[in-house]
């Protein structure tokens, strides 16, 4: 039986007269990369915001590992194990790799040094980040390297590594390669596959169809505020999917 890690049923969201989500469903299976594609204004980002707690839907239900959840803030989603990588490079360039990986979740020393003097456990954090970078196959000279000495692809890799380190159920990536060149995009795509191989399902929002066809296991096509089809890259061509996405073709016409 297929396990669903993240699901949504009948999500609806109105902004005045604008319908951003219209009875929208969503399913993410364990161990898969699910791409979400859709035209500009189709409501992808509203769906993603609802799944990450940034938007509270008017109605509908979200389930994590089959349990209904009610996210009131991004913090709630994070507590449920959902972490997000954003398009803009979400790293602090003047800090080093370890500091970025542990930003907002710093570890303190045990005993008085930690409780009274609030001293950070730098060596434990360095070990943790070295392990995390190695697990994801991210190559850097040193864990102490400041992020501004890294290339754009490596920086996004650090952002992915942080998210993958803390996510316990889902990693969501919102246009993670939009700001990157071809070579760096490929590095990040490899990283996304690594995250899946390490056991976390990934939701990839992307405008780049070749990228989607390269890594996705299934593709959620979004149109007019709802999911109108789910296809697999092996059985559907990019042209067909784009035609459905833009309304040139009805989803029933897909093989």
């Amino acid at each position: 039986m297929t396990q669903f890690v993240l699901q949504a049923r009948g999500l609806t969201k109105h902004y005045g007269h604008v319908v951003a989500m219209d009875n929208c469903d969503f399913d993410l299976r364990a161990g898969e990369i699910l791409a979400v594609i859709g035209d500009n204004g189709a409501g992808k980002s509203t769906l993603i915001k609802a799944l990450t707690g940034a938007v509270i839907p008017d109605s509908g239900e979200i389930m994590v590992n089959g349990e209904p959840v009610h996210f009131r803030s991004p913090l709630d989603a994070r507590k449920a194990g959902i972490e997000t990588v954003y398009q803009e490079l979400g790293v602090a360039p003047a800090l080093d790799i370890t500091q970025n990986l542990y930003l907002g979740r710093e570890q303190r020393r045990k005993g008085l040094l930690g409780t009274v003097f609030r001293k950070l456990d730098k060596s434990a954090m360095r070990q943790g980040s070295a392990r995390q970078m190695a697990d994801l196959g991210i190559r850097v000279q040193s864990i102490r390297q400041k992020v501004d000495t890294l290339s754009g692809g490596q920086r996004q890799a650090v952002a992915v590594a942080r998210v993958a380190a803390w996510a316990t159920s889902v990693v969501i990536m919102d246009e993670p390669t939009a700001a990157l060149g071809v070579r760096e995009t490929n590095q990040v795509l490899q990283l996304i596959e690594r995250v899946r191989e390490n056991g976390l399902p990934v939701v990839l929002i992307s405008h780049n169809m070749p990228n989607v066809w390269q890594v996705a296991d299934r593709i959620h096509i979004h149109r007019l505020g709802r999911r109108i089809a789910v296809v697999e890259p092996d059985s559907t061509t990019m042209e067909e999917a784009v035609a459905v996405m833009t309304g040139a073709k009805q989803p029933e016409a897909l093989a």
Partner: peptide, 24 residues
């Protein structure tokens, strides 16, 4: 340099948006 507060001060000055996204 030795406390989480310090790291966060640097992060907020460096990239406030990234800092906010990490929950700071």
């Amino acid at each position: 340099t030795q406390t989480a507060w310090g790291v966060r001060v640097y992060a907020v000055g460096d990239n406030p948006r990234a800092a906010a996204l990490t929950g700071i």
